[in-house]
Amino acid sequence: MTTMLILIPLTFLLLLVAGAAFFWAVNHEQFDDLDSAGLLPLTDHAPERPEPPEEPPP
């Protein structure tokens, strides 16, 4: 019983972290373009990214 009382809150915590990570990814364009990212590892010298945006888009 005690193990359950420890493990259940732990799963809730993990669930919250996973959900937050997914929302973050969706809001930060990780799911907007699923095509070009696959090509990145194929380039010899990936040119450095232009200056990153200062804040997330709306």
């Binding site: 907007d32 373009d33 095509d35 040119p47 990214r49 232009p50 888009p57």
Partner: peptide
């Protein structure tokens, strides 16, 4: 990439 090389370009997003 080609737009990214221009000065002042912060973000480029293409929807193919």
């Amino acid at each position: 990439r080609s737009l990214g090389t221009l000065p002042g370009v912060a973000q480029v997003q293409v929807n193919a």
